[in-house]
Write a protein that binds this DNA or RNA. Structure first.
Lengths: 250, 250
DNA sequence: CAGTGGTCTAGACCACAAC
DNA sequence: TTGTGGTCTAGACCACTGA
C-alpha cells in the first residue's frame, strides 16, 4: 500500500468514527507532514482522495474541513402527470422552484443517450431549450434542465424553438398539433458533473449529480422531446411510494 | 486560470469533440510536458482532473485511455410490488441477478439517513444483513445490498438476524408475526463510492453509485427495516413510466 | 495581514503489465 | 523486457481569505 493510502485510511477512519467532527478541520498540511514523516506532496495526495470522496472540503486560510452532509430534499415523483392552468407538471414538490431566466435556445451536439432516443446520429446538433431552475428569492440555482427537441418536431412546429412558447408551453403546442395524448417515461441515473454544472449548482468536489431523463412520445411512439434535468445528488433524492399488487398476494 | 486547468480544458474539449476517440490514448505524459512546457506534476494534475470526471482511465504501460461509457442497463422499478413462490420482488428486470453468497450478518454503525429512519441515534450499531448480488455465471458483482433491521424487530423476531430466514425471507416472517400488509417506499440518490464499494463493484475512478433506499413499514407506520442497495451509476439507470391522470385533464 | 492551501519545478526510483 | 504511469522528495513562490 502506498504511503498516501495509509494516511488517507487513517484520516478517513477518524472522520467516520466522528473523532474529527463535521465542521472541524484536519491537522494542517505541515502538521501532517511531520506526523507521518512524509513530504507535502504525499500528504496532499492523501487529502485529495478524501476530497474526491466528498468527505472533506479545503478552505483557504481555514484548513481542510470535514463536511457535514446537508439533509436531502426529497422530490416525490408523481406516477401520474398532473396539469393545472399553467401546464403539465411531474412533481408534487417542485412548486417552489422557478426558472431563473427565460429559456436559452441553442443548437448543441446531443449527448449520446439523447441522440439515441431522438434517433439522430451521435454528435449531431439538435435544438436545445436550456433552463436554470432555482429559488426565486435567493437566485440560488438548484437544477439545470435542458429540453432536446426532435428535428422533426421543430420542422413541424417552429414555435418550439422560440423562447416563449405560449400558454402551457411546448407540450400544449404538441397536443394542439394532434399528438394528444402525449406519453412520458423517466429514467434516473447519476454521473460526475461537468465543470460548468459544478459551477452553476455550486457543487463541492466529490459530489455527483442526479440526472433525470424524461422522454415525450406521441401516442404512436415517436419521440418528440427528451428533457434532461441535472441536480445535486447531495441535496436531492427522488422518492416514490410502492403500491401493493393485492390481487397477486396469496 | 492555473496552467493545469488550461491543459485539462484543451484535452477535455478534444475528447468531447471526438478528436481523441474512445479507446485511444492521450499523448503520454512526457509528450504533454514537452507540448505544454510544463513539469510532470502539472501535467499529471491536469489529467487527474479528467480522471475524476470519469472521462479517462489510466492504464499502466498503455497510457491514458479515453473511456467509452458502457450502455446503461435499465432497472424498471415496479410501482407495484409483486410476489411469487419465492417472495416479494420490487423490480421486473432484476430476475437475472442472484445473491453471490449467503447474507453476512454484522452489527454496524447505521448510516445517518438510515439511523433517522430507524429511529436510533446516529452512529449507533444496528443489525445488518449484507448481500452481494451479481451474475451467477461470471461471479461479477453488480449490486451491494444491505438490509438494516430495527432493534425492535430483531428483539421481536430473532430469526431476522439469522443467515437463513426461511421461505419468503424476512418479509414473510414479519407478516406472519402480524405486521401484514407491509408497506414500502423508495428513494433514489447518488454519491461517490467508498473504497470498498469501488473495489467490490470494480468501479473506475470518477464513477458514482446510485443508492436505492427502501423503507419497510408496518400498517401502523413503524419502520421495521431499511434496505440500501448500491449500484454503479454508469451501468444502471432506474426507469418508470408515467401515467396520465386523465380525470384532471381539461 | 498572516497563515492557509494552490501551484509549480526538477529529479529520482518503483511497479506493473502489455508487448 | 521495457515503457508506461505511480510514488515520493525538497524546495520555492503565489493567492486568497478569514482571524
Amino acid at each position: 500500500m502506498a504511503r498516501w493510502e495509509t494516511i488517507t485510511g487513517e484520516l478517513r477512519e477518524a472522520i467516520i468514527r466522528g473523532e474529527i467532527a463535521p465542521g472541524t478541520t484536519l491537522p494542517r498540511e505541515t502538521d501532517l507532514e511531520e506526523r507521518y514523516g512524509a513530504s507535502r506532496t504525499t500528504v496532499r495526495r492523501a487529502v485529495e482522495e478524501l476530497e474526491a470522496e466528498g468527505l472533506v472540503e479545503k478552505v483557504r486560510r481555514r484548513g481542510t474541513v470535514v463536511r457535514r452532509s446537508p439533509a436531502r430534499t426529497r422530490l416525490t415523483r408523481s406516477r401520474r402527470v398532473y396539469r393545472d392552468d399553467i401546464g403539465y407538471f411531474f412533481d408534487r414538490t417542485a412548486q417552489g422552484w422557478r426558472a431563473l431566466e427565460t429559456p436559452t435556445i441553442t443548437r448543441v451536439p446531443a449527448p449520446a443517450d439523447v441522440a439515441r432516443l431522438l434517433g439522430v446520429e451521435p454528435g449531431g446538433d439538435v435544438t436545445a431549450r436550456s433552463r436554470i431552475m432555482g429559488e426565486p428569492d435567493t437566485g440560488e440555482a438548484t437544477q439545470v434542465a435542458v429540453s432536446y427537441l426532435s428535428p422533426d418536431a421543430v420542422a413541424e412546429l417552429p414555435v418550439l424553438a422560440e423562447p416563449d412558447t405560449g400558454p402551457g408551453g411546448i407540450y400544449d403546442r404538441m397536443e394542439e398539433a394532434g399528438h394528444s395524448p402525449l406519453e412520458w417515461e423517466e429514467a434516473i441515473s447519476a454521473r460526475m458533473p461537468s465543470p460548468e454544472e459544478a459551477r452553476l449548482l455550486a457543487l463541492a468536489p466529490g459530489v455527483p449529480v442526479l440526472r433525470i431523463v424524461r422522454t415525450t412520445r406521441t401516442p404512436g411512439g415517436r419521440v418528440l422531446e427528451v428533457n434532461a434535468t441535472v441536480l445535486s445528488a447531495e441535496r436531492f433524492e427522488i422518492g416514490y411510494a410502492i403500491d401493493r399488487d393485492t390481487s397477486a398476494t396469496p
